[in-house]
Computed example of a mutant assay.
Amino acid sequence: MAERVLVIGSGGREHALAWKLAQSPHVQQVLVAPGNAGTASCGKISNSAVNVSNHTILAQYCKDHNVALVVVGPEVPLAAGIVDDLTAAGVPCFGPSAKAAQLEASKSFSKSFMDRYGISTARWSSFTDPQEACSYIQGADFPALVVKASGLAAGKGVIVAKDKEEACQAVLDIMKDKAFGAAGDTVVVEELLEGEEVSCLCFSDGSTVAAMPPAQDHKRLLDGDKGPNTGGMGAYCPTPQVSGEMLQQIKTTVLQKTVDGMKEDGIPYVGVLYAGLMLTQQGPKVLEFNCRFGDPECQVSNHPPPK
Rank of each mutant, 00 (worst) to 15 (best):
S41K: 12
Y136I: 07
N51D: 15
V32N: 11
L78P: 06
E104S: 10
Q138S: 13
E132G: 13
K107E: 14
D85T: 13
S125T: 11
F113Q: 06
D141V: 04
F127E: 12
A89M: 11
L69F: 02
M114K: 04
S24Y: 07
V50H: 07
F142A: 08
V91D: 01
I82W: 02
D85A: 15
V83Y: 03
K148E: 06
A68E: 03
F127C: 08
P74R: 04
V32Q: 02
S126H: 15
C42D: 14
A140W: 00
L86P: 11
F113N: 05
I137K: 10
P34S: 02
S106Y: 09
V146W: 05
V147F: 09
A68T: 00
H26T: 14
K107L: 08
K44H: 12
L58Y: 04
G73N: 11
A68L: 05
K44C: 01
L145Q: 02
L86S: 08
E75Q: 00
H26Y: 11
P130N: 08
Q28M: 12
A33R: 01
D84S: 14
G81R: 10
S53A: 14
Q131F: 08
A40P: 01
S46T: 15
S41Q: 15
E132F: 09
G90N: 03
T39K: 06
L69D: 02
L103I: 10
Y61H: 12
W124S: 11
K148V: 05
V91F: 08
T87W: 11
T56I: 09
S97Y: 09
K63E: 02
V67I: 15
A122Y: 06
V146I: 08
S126D: 14
A49L: 08
L103N: 03
Q23P: 13
A122Q: 04
S97E: 07
E132L: 15
V71I: 06
S46V: 07
C62Q: 03
S135F: 03
E132T: 15
L145P: 10
S108F: 12
N36C: 00
I119P: 07
P77E: 02
V83N: 00
C42W: 08
C62A: 05
Q131T: 13
V32M: 07
H26P: 00
P143Y: 00
H65C: 09
T56M: 01
H65K: 14
V72M: 05
A59V: 02
N51T: 04
A98S: 15
W124V: 10
P130F: 15
A133G: 03
S24C: 06
A59Q: 03
Q138W: 09
V83E: 04
V67W: 02
A88G: 04
Y117I: 08
L145S: 01
N36D: 01
F113W: 07
K44Y: 07
A140N: 02
Q28T: 06
K44I: 08
T128M: 12
V71E: 02
A33K: 03
P92G: 05
A101E: 02
A144T: 03
L69R: 09
S110W: 07
H55W: 06
N36T: 10
G73L: 04
E75S: 02
T128D: 10
A100C: 01
